[in-house]
Nucleic acid binder design. Sequence first.
DNA 1: ACACTATCGTTCGGTCCCGAACGACTTCCG
DNA 2: CGGAAGTCGTTCGGGACCGAACGATAGTGT
Lengths: 180, 180
Amino acid sequence: MSRIVPGAFSSDDDAQMRQAERDVTHAFEGQAFDFAALLAVSNVFRAATAVRNHMEREVLSPHQLSWSAFVVLFVLRVWGKQESHQLAREAGITGGTLTGVLTTLERRGFAKRAAHPTDGRRVIVSPTAKGRRTVDQIMPVFNHHEALVTADLSPTDRRELARLLRTVLRTLDTDGQDVD
Amino acid sequence: MSRIVPGAFSSDDDAQMRQAERDVTHAFEGQAFDFAALLAVSNVFRAATAVRNHMEREVLSPHQLSWSAFVVLFVLRVWGKQESHQLAREAGITGGTLTGVLTTLERRGFAKRAAHPTDGRRVIVSPTAKGRRTVDQIMPVFNHHEALVTADLSPTDRRELARLLRTVLRTLDTDGQDVD
DNA sequence: ACACTATCGTTCGGTCCCGAACGACTTCCG
DNA sequence: CGGAAGTCGTTCGGGACCGAACGATAGTGT
C-alpha cells in the first residue's frame, strides 16, 4: 500500500498520510519543508499516470492508439488542419515527438501531411475521413471513461479541480517563457 | 496558444474555454458530453507533463536523473530498504520498468540489489550512502520548485488539489482491481 | 516425493518522449 | 542579389514505460 497515496482501505487515509508526513519531515529534519506542495505535485503526477494507463488499456488499446496519438487526432478532428508546431503545442508534446506520432498516424491512414503553400519549411497536417470517423467512434467511450474516473467528484469538484490545475499550468507557462 | 488550456493571456481564459467548449460540443453534437470531465482529465495530464518536464529540466537534469529514478531514490531514502514489488508500487511504475530504472541507479552507484534471506525469487533494494547523499542534496531544491509551481495556489488550494486527486486515484484503484 | 499452481524479478518488443544536432528553407540586411 | 542569421520539421541517442512472455523459485495437495 502506498504511503503517500492511499490504497484501497480509505478509512486509514488520514493516518497513513500523517505518518508519511512525519516520515518525510523527519528524513529531512532541520529544513523547512512544504509538504502540501509535495503532496499536490506528487498526486498530480500519480493521477495522470493512472488515468493515462486506464484510458490506454480500456479505451485506446483496441484501436492500437497511444494517448498522444489520440490527443493529436482529437485536436485535428475538432479544430481541423493546422501547422505542425501549433498541433504539437496543442497536444502538449515537442516537435520531435510529434514527428514520430504523425508518422504512425500517417502510416495507419488517420492523418496526412501537406506542404505549406508559400513556406517550404512548414507542414500542414490534416485528418483523413478515416481519422475523423475513428475519433467519432472512440470519443463517446473515451468521454464516458473520463466521467467514470471522476465519478466520485461532484460537478463542482470537477470544475474546481480543473481550475486549480489551470492555475498551476499558467504558473509554469508564464515563468517558463520568462522575459522575451 | 492552447485552446483547452489557457496560454499567457489569462484575461482571455474564460472566453477561450467557452469557445473550446462550443467547438467540442459542436464537433460531437447530438451526443451527451461531459465537458467538465474532459477538462478535469485533460488538465490533470497536461499539468503532470508540464510539472515533470519542469522538474527534469530545472532540478534533475544536472544530476542526470529522470523523474522516475529520483522518485525511486526518494522512496529508498525516506523508507529505507525494501522489496522490489513494494518499491515499484510506491514509485508508481510497473515491475518491468523498475528493473530498468534500478539498473541505471545501480550502475551509477545510487542503489544496490541484495538477495532475500529466505525467498530466492525476491530482491531487496537498498540505497547506498551516495544515493542518500544525493537525495539530501536534491530534495531541498526539488521541494522549493514544488512550492514554486504551486505558488499561485493558497495553502488551502494545495490541500484541496491533493484531496481531489486522491479521490480520482482511489476511484481508479478500487474499480481497477475489481472483485477478487 | 512430486506434479501443479502461484508468485517473484527479468527480458523483450514496441512505442513514447525529450533535447540536441541537423539540413532545408526563409528572412534580413548590406 | 547574396551571405548571415533565424526558423522550420526531422533525425538521432538514450532513457522510460507498458504488457506479455519467460525462467526461476516457492508453496500446495496428494
